[in-house]
């Protein structure tokens, strides 16, 4: 079985390293992008669509909300699970992201355990993987 793949989209290299470490621990193969535009370009060249994307909100070129909207408009990318990972924590922002098509929302700062629990909620890791 080929491993599941996760895109980590954040303009902060430090945050990408944290997220990459967590998904790698969960046996995902990680693909990094520095903004939404770069992520869309990478997706265009991929024959197999990653199962998961962890997406920052505030990024140059194409922000996370625009990325989510574009992914949702593309039938080829329908199966991707989209998780916003951002400091944007006003309730109205969470509602906007969910309305645009994000499946889950993790507020920074997050613990590794919280991220794993969210992915478990989405059925991407077995429950109890954190214990």
């Amino acid at each position: 079985m080929t491993p599941m793949r996760a895109m980590v989209i954040d303009d902060s290299r430090a945050m990408r390293m944290i997220l990459k470490r967590i998904v790698t621990k969960l046996n995902f193969e990680a693909v990094e992008a520095g903004d939404g535009k770069e992520a869309m370009d990478l997706l265009a060249d991929m024959t197999e669509v990653p199962e998961l994307a962890l997406i920052d909100w505030n990024m140059p070129n194409m922000n996370g909300l625009e990325f989510v909207t574009k992914v949702r408009a593309d039938p080829r990318l329908r199966e991707m699970t989209l998780v916003m990972v951002t400091t944007e924590s006003e309730q109205s922002q969470i509602v906007r992201a969910l309305a645009a098509g994000a499946h889950e929302y993790v507020i920074k700062p997050f613990t590794e355990g919280a991220m794993i629990e969210k992915l478990a909620l989405l059925g991407l890791v077995p429950t109890g993987a954190n214990s």
């Binding site: 902060s12 400091t87 924590s89 922002q93 920074k108």
Partner: peptide, 19 residues
């Protein structure tokens, strides 16, 4: 590494203040 980390620390606290 140091520069990226400090930037992200300020960004996280700042983002939460903004909220």
């Amino acid at each position: 590494d140091m520069s990226d980390t400090l930037g992200e620390l300020a960004n996280i606290v700042g983002g939460n203040v903004k909220a």
